[in-house]
Structures are given as structure tokens and as C-alpha cells.
């Protein structure tokens, strides 16, 4: 008896799902790791771009302009394949985390910078007027307020990153898309498997979206001057 694709899919579902869920786990790991690296890099970038020293500002701007103009796939390839050529061989997962981190950091630099600048100049001046140093003013008065402005775009970035991790499949990182490709190669059940994959991504991204939406709404009545 010749089973149609959907029947085969149903028959192998437990095995397929198990494999895909392993991929989900890895997707979450790469997303989380990349997010952390991107946030740290982004904060550094924002400090560079708002620095009083022109040299630092230029470096920051160069970083942002270059890494935002090149696709993340290219950056991953440079880190994974390119570095291997010159002797530095990285595993796929660390390579992916670093790649997404540096790329995301360029994007987040602008988000954090906008957050800092969104805090009214007068706040900084009031802090200076009571005798705080610029560093104290930034740390105690401006940054806490900037944080609130920054949360929604940060959340949206996280959602975008979750989806972008699919591209890490091309450097053999065993995340969801990679597992899916492998399974499709094995079973030829492309439609069924990719639809399942889409559902899995949705299951991850929709709750995040909801969270960001509610953050955005709370921000609208926020306590930022």
C-alpha cells in the first residue's frame, strides 16, 4: 500500500516532533545568547556614539554603519568559514551567537542611543546643577529613564532575532530550521514539516509579541520626562 504524504507524516509524527523540539531548544539557546551579546555590544556602542570624544563617536558610527549594511548571513559566513580559513575554527553555535550578537549590537546601538537621547536634556542639566558629574548624571538619572523607552524596541528585536536564527542553519547550527532541512532530506515531507516548523516558530513568537505589545501600552503612560 502506498501511503500518501500526510499519512506518512502522521505515522512518523512522534519521531519528527522529537527531533524538531531538539531544534527548538537550540533555537532558544542561540536567541538568548545572541540577545545577551547584542545587548552588551549595543550598550557599548551607544556609549561610544554619545561620547564626548570625537574619535570614539567615529568608531561607534563606523561600527553601526558597516554592520547594519551587511546581511547577517554574510557575517555568519565570515565568522564561521572565513575565520576557519585563517586558523580560528569555531563551532556553529558559538559562531552563530557571536555573529548575531555583533550584528544585533549595531542595531541595538541605535536603539539605546535613541533611548538616551529621548530623556530630555533638562534632566541631565538638573542633575549637573545639583553637583553630579556627567558620569553620575548618566548613571543615576538618565539611564534609568532611558531603560523604559528602550524596552519595546528591545522586545521587538528579540522577536526578530528569534526568526533570524533560522539562518544559522546554513552554518550547520542544529537549531529548528536545520533539523527541519535534515528531516525533509530524509523523508521528503517538505510541506508537512515546514508547516509544522512555521507553527513552532509562531508558538515561540506570538507570546513574545503579546508581551511587547503590553509593554508598549504601559510605556505610553510611562514615567519618563
Amino acid at each position: 500500500m502506498n501511503l500518501g504524504p500526510w499519512e506518512r507524516f502522521a505515522a512518523q509524527f512522534p519521531y519528527l516532533m522529537e527531533t524538531l523540539l531538539l531544534g527548538v531548544e537550540m533555537t532558544i539557546i542561540v536567541t538568548f545568547g545572541g540577545f545577551v551579546v547584542a545587548t552588551a555590544t549595543g550598550m557599548l556602542g551607544a556609549l561610544l556614539r554619545t561620547s564626548r570624544l570625537m574619535v570614539l563617536r567615529v568608531i561607534g558610527t563606523l561600527y553601526v554603519d558597516v554592520f547594519r549594511a551587511v546581511p547577517v548571513l554574510t557575517q555568519l559566513f565570515i565568522i564561521y568559514f572565513g575565520l576557519a580559513e585563517i586558523g580560528l575554527k569555531l563551532d556553529p553555535i558559538p559562531a552563530a551567537i557571536i555573529g548575531f550578537g555583533i550584528h544585533g549590537g549595531a542595531y541595538l546601538t541605535e536603539v539605546f542611543r535613541a533611548g538616551i537621547e529621548a530623556v530630555h536634556r533638562g534632566q541631565n542639566e538638573a542633575a549637573l546643577a545639583i553637583g553630579m558629574t556627567p558620569a553620575q548624571a548618566l548613571r543615576i538619572i538618565v539611564l534609568p529613564q532611558a531603560m523604559r523607552v528602550v524596552l519595546p524596541p528591545l522586545g521587538n528585536y528579540a522577536i526578530g532575532l528569534l526568526k533570524d536564527t533560522s539562518v544559522a542553519s546554513s552554518v550547520a547550527a542544529p537549531e529548528l530550521s536545520f533539523r527541519a532541512h535534515m528531516l525533509v532530506d530524509q523523508t521528503y515531507l517538505s510541506t508537512q514539516i515546514y508547516l509544522t516548523v512555521a507553527a513552532l516558530y509562531l508558538a515561540m513568537s506570538l507570546p513574545l509579541s503579546r508581551l511587547v505589545h503590553s509593554l508598549e501600552r504601559r510605556m505610553a503612560r510611562g514615567r519618563v520626562a
Binding site: 530630555h120 533638562g122 534632566q123 542639566e125 534609568p144 529613564q145 514615567r223 520626562a225
Partner: peptide, 10 residues
Amino acid sequence: VFQRFYLFPH
């Protein structure tokens, strides 16, 4: 003391 107060909202 500033015209627009600039109290720290947080």
C-alpha cells in the same frame, strides 16, 4: 531652579 522644574520622574 529651572523654568520647567526638571524633577526626576523616576
